[in-house]
């Protein structure tokens, strides 16, 4: 089988998996719906209650879960290539810590709860910029290793800020903010999906556009420079786009851990060596996994819900261990 055919097959399988996961996500819940019911309800036919459940609750939820999963996985795939590090992922590079600080500070500062996502987004963006600034202060160019260390340092700093906020702000409000940070797509609305999709499509499109540069960056600085890539600029660009994509997922759904780290590894060997294929495949696989994780989060202990971030982490660990065996 040629490589091209293998890729087409892989994409078909991943797309089919996403569709199946979405059907499961749409059909399973307190009111069970068959795929035919789902189809009819989406089209506005049949039982009025089913239509309402579908349009107002389950469909937005499944769509947002899919978008968030795709964004995180694509961001992780791009960052791993750019940083030349299989451990790189958006959360490790400051996004999660910054988002948590932003959310907690918003609450501690007395902002209404509706502004928490905005605070999280602002915090994530600030952290991304801070990491970049720290990494650049060390030298003329942001070394991937320094960038990773800066991410860890900013994360530790963020933890300290959160603890101080916890100690000094009304406990309930901070707990609410932290609870929200654990990840959920429960409150998904079409309006939210609209802005996230617009932002996500732009950023993901930019990542796919610059993917050939990431291929070259993954070879190392000297080789990349020899191939006509401005290593500093291209590396910074990929880092900023990927991190901002991840930052938006935090605003939309809180922290959904492990997806950005694990999913790229799941698809990397099968999607081949070019990042355009890897990032695209990671997007489909990430969407599938987060849709399924959300399904688990809301059905395992129904009627109460588990945090989505906890489910992805629980599911991600065994995946990761399995994957580790393949590293030599």
């Amino acid at each position: 089988m040629t490589q091209r055919r293998r890729h087409v097959l892989l994409y078909l399988v991943l797309a089919a998996a996403t569709v199946l996961a979405a059907l499961a996500g749409l059909g399973i819940g307190p009111v069970r719906l068959t795929p035919v019911d789902v189809w009819n309800a989406l089209g506005g036919r049949g039982d009025v209650t089913a239509v309402a459940i579908m349009r107002d609750i389950r469909a937005p939820r499944v769509v947002l879960a899919g978008l968030v999963g795709a964004a995180l996985a694509m961001s992780g795939a791009a960052l791993q290539g750019t940083m030349r590090n299989p451990l790189a992922e958006p959360y490790l590079l400051g996004v999660s810590g910054g988002a948590a600080v932003g959310a907690v500070l918003a609450v501690a500062g007395g902002a209404p709860f509706g502004l928490v996502p905005l605070g999280a987004f602002a915090g994530a963006v600030a952290a991304v910029m801070l990491v970049l600034a720290i990494a650049r202060a060390g030298g003329r160019r942001p070394d991937p290793r320094v960038l990773l260390m800066a991410g860890v340092v900013v994360g530790a700093f963020a933890n300290a800020v959160i603890m101080i906020a916890l100690a000094s702000a009304p406990a309930d409000s901070v707990r609410n903010a932290l609870w929200w940070m654990m990840g959920s797509v429960a409150g998904a609305t079409w309006g939210q999906i609209g802005w996230f999709a617009a932002y996500g499509v732009l950023s993901a499109g930019a990542l796919l556009l610059f993917a050939p540069e990431i291929d070259v960056l993954a070879l190392g600085d000297d080789a990349a420079a020899g191939l006509g890539v401005n290593v500093d600029r291209a590396g910074r660009r990929a880092y900023v786009i990927a991190s901002l994509l991840a930052a938006a997922t935090v605003a939309a759904a809180g922290l959904v851990g492990f997806v950005g780290l694990v999913v790229p590894h799941l698809v990397r060997t099968r999607a081949g060596s070019r990042h355009r294929a890897v990032i695209g495949a990671a997007g489909l696989a990430g969407a599938t996994l987060v849709i399924l994780a959300d399904l688990v989060a809301r059905t395992l202990r129904a009627p109460s819900e588990l945090p989505l971030g906890a489910v992805t982490a629980l599911g991600g660990v065994p995946f990761f261990l399995f994957q580790l065996r393949r590293f030599k």
């Binding site: 791993q80 070879l219 000297d222 080789a223 081949g272």
Partner: peptide, 15 residues
């Protein structure tokens, strides 16, 4: 100008 630098280690295996 094409350059083969002294060392090079791709971060991920490529075909």
């Amino acid at each position: 100008v094409a350059v083969v630098s002294q060392r090079e280690e791709p971060a991920f295996p490529l075909r």
